[in-house]
Amino acid sequence: MFGEKVIELLKEADRNRETIDQFNDEKIRQIIEEMHVLFKMNMDDANATTENRSLWTTVQVRHSALERNKRCLLAYLYNRMDKIKTLRWEFGSVLPPDVRELLADSEYEWFSKYSTNLAKYMRSLGEDIGYSGIDLTENLRPPKSLYIEVLCVTDYGKLELEDGDVVMLKKNSRHFLPTSECQTLIRQGQAEVRHIPAVTFPPCLRRIGCASRASRIRSVA
């Protein structure tokens, strides 16, 4: 049956929607080989259609299979490319080595180019009004306070703040730090700093939350 290998490849990719897998070059090589064989068979049969008209239908079936394989391979690469784009936003411009080895060489090249383009764009932002660029990967959610309380989950070492102070981030120590200094560490997870959310809220808000939920159910039903 046609196109079974390619479906295995895609099912594998579909199972891991949230993370990126090792680039499966072995399977891709097999699929391309299958396509070469199909193409060769089609060439031979297409040349023979002058004597045997009925071969024409077979050529069409194989051609559909070729198109299908092409579509699946393109979809595989495209979906990986989408994930690599996310890598740039979530891991930052330097990939940890264990993530780096999941990418194929050409994919890594694409990543570097994307990263350069993004950096160039971010530097160019606000030039006309005297700013030297904005880091768009920061503050993906509106910051609520200038300082946040954080808990270190591993030994990170020294962290130098913008005002020159040096903070020692030791495991299980708590700090009160400027949001802008430590949010990249939290996002990238590499510094292992965890945000402790403040738990102060007026009780009236809680009641509104429950009421709106109930009324929504009622309006649907």
Partner: peptide, 9 residues
């Protein structure tokens, strides 16, 4: 909205 570790990470 507390800052959390990015999803993919």
């Amino acid at each position: 909205c507390p800052i959390t570790t990015a999803n993919m990470v």
